[in-house]
Design a protein around this nucleic acid. Structure first.
Length: 384
RNA sequence: GGACCCAUGGUGUAGCCCGGUUAACACAUCUCCCUGUCACGGAGAAGAUCAGGGGUUCAAAUCCCCUUGGGUCCG
């Protein structure tokens, strides 16, 4: 039912093309996994839009289903695929990222790569508005306060696993402790050790035959820790291996960290770079052997009026597009580009119509998949 | 013919009665940001000789007079 077949390996880099087979169809890799936190890709897309945006697969979040308390209903309905009319392969993240995003991320107001936030560590001030929603982390689990209603949510490795089984994704993820790029080595080691303990507890649960597990390498920005975690995850009986946690303060740090991992990681399994998906890193991460990557950015910036294009990012709300009756991207075959001009989408954003964000979401996903298809073809042709 | 009201960045307004720090706010504009989604959001910049002129005063968007433009009401 499940298989990862490598079709072509580059001689110039660690890039490869492959096919991941699942009970819900295949994924051509390298592939982008659109984020569908609550089961649907944000921006008002429905299942008829998946074809429009060439979506191959999607990733949903365990924490938010616990927060909403809807995992049982999804199970009764027959799982995420049926509940949300998504026929393709589905991934579910474990909830480990929320330890960062609702914890240190929310508290200090930065992302998992610090690069986006200029200045040194001392510049980091606690943001007043954001409350830390992660109360306690122990070897048994993590105590959250719900961002929705403030109630306590205690997430354990077993609960994460059991919830992911209820949701019924094809690929489920070990519960890890996602750290911050500003953790010192001691903190990063504690987080890594906790993650490893949690992994073992997670694996105690019997996983159904129609699901497979991805392990997650932790260790933050420290080479020694990354190497140790890579060895640990290599030894787990998991289908694929994800690279998680903090990835440095600059994109170059991230490439360096993946480089360390690559010296130890098992290359026969698919590699998933968690949470990164900017246009300018695509080629670099693929050359580092990344087969899967997911990111909130392409769909989020779409809702914030930014379109991905061969010219880079375009803010469609700007007045320069007011009288531009061409499509976003010249030869783009996406639903938005085939039916709407920049001027029309510009108007829809000005008018605050939700259709605007929907159109750009479809475009950005289509554009990304198109870029990936080009790269896959280059790898096949030995030109990458 | 008579009485009254209004005029403040691109737009809409606050401030005026009871003069006193860099004239405030919203939207629009521009820039930057968003990376295993608590987020269709966040940060910042630019932009006004307060209709024009005169007067009172140490000091006027603010008080007084005139002019111009717009509006309302009574004949």
């Amino acid at each position: 039912m499940f298989d990862f077949k490598i079709l072509k390996k580059s001689k110039k880099s660690k890039a490869r093309t492959g096919i991941i087979k699942t009970p819900h169809g295949e994924i051509k890799t390298p592939a982008f996994i659109p984020v569908a936190t609550l089961g649907v890709i944000k921006g008002g897309l429905d299942f008829t839009d998946h074809e429009k945006s060439r979506v191959q697969c999607q990733i949903t979040n365990t924490f938010h289903f616990l927060d909403l308390n809807y995992a049982d209903q999804v199970k009764k309905a027959g799982g995420l695929h049926k509940f949300f009319h998504f026929p393709g392969p589905i991934f579910t993240d474990s909830g480990g990222f929320q330890i960062f995003s609702l914890g240190k991320g929310a508290e200090f107001g930065f992302g998992k790569t610090g690069s986006i936030f200029p200045g040194d560590d001392n510049d980091r001030k606690k943001t007043s508005g954001n409350k830390k929603l992660v109360k306690k982390i122990t070897e048994n689990g993590v105590l959250f306060l719900s961002p929705r209603d403030g109630r306590r949510i205690y997430l354990t490795p077993h609960l994460s696993c059991e919830t992911q089984i209820k949701l019924g994704a094809d690929f489920i993820y070990l519960l890890d402790v996602c750290g911050s790029p500003f953790d010192d080595k001691k903190t990063a080691k504690t987080e890594m050790d906790l993650s490893h303990q949690w992994f073992e507890k997670f694996m105690e649960v019997k996983i159904p035959k129609n699901q497979r597990v991805f392990g997650i390498i932790q260790g933050g920005i420290y080479r020694e820790l990354r190497e140790e975690s890579t060895r640990f995850v290599n030894d787990l009986p998991v289908f694929g291996i994800a690279i998680g946690g903090a990835l440095g303060k600059k994109k170059s740090d991230m490439y360096k960290i993946i480089g360390w991992i690559n010296k130890k990681i098992d290359f026969s399994r698919p590699h998933h770079l968690l949470g990164m998906g900017d246009l300018d890193i695509l080629e670099n991460i693929i050359k580092l052997g990344i087969d899967l990557f997911d990111c909130a950015l392409p769909t989020r910036i779409a809702r914030h009026a930014t379109a991905m294009s061969a010219r880079g990012y375009l803010n469609i709300k700007k007045n320069i597009f007011r009288n531009n009756f061409k499509s976003i991207e010249k030869n783009c075959g996406c639903f938005a580009c085939k039916n709407y001009s920049l001027a029309q989408i510009n108007f829809l954003f000005k008018a605050k119509e939700q259709l605007a964000g929907r159109l750009l979401t479809i475009h950005n996903l289509y554009f990304l998949e198109n870029q990936l298809e080009k790269i896959r073809k280059k790898i096949e042709a030995g030109k990458f």
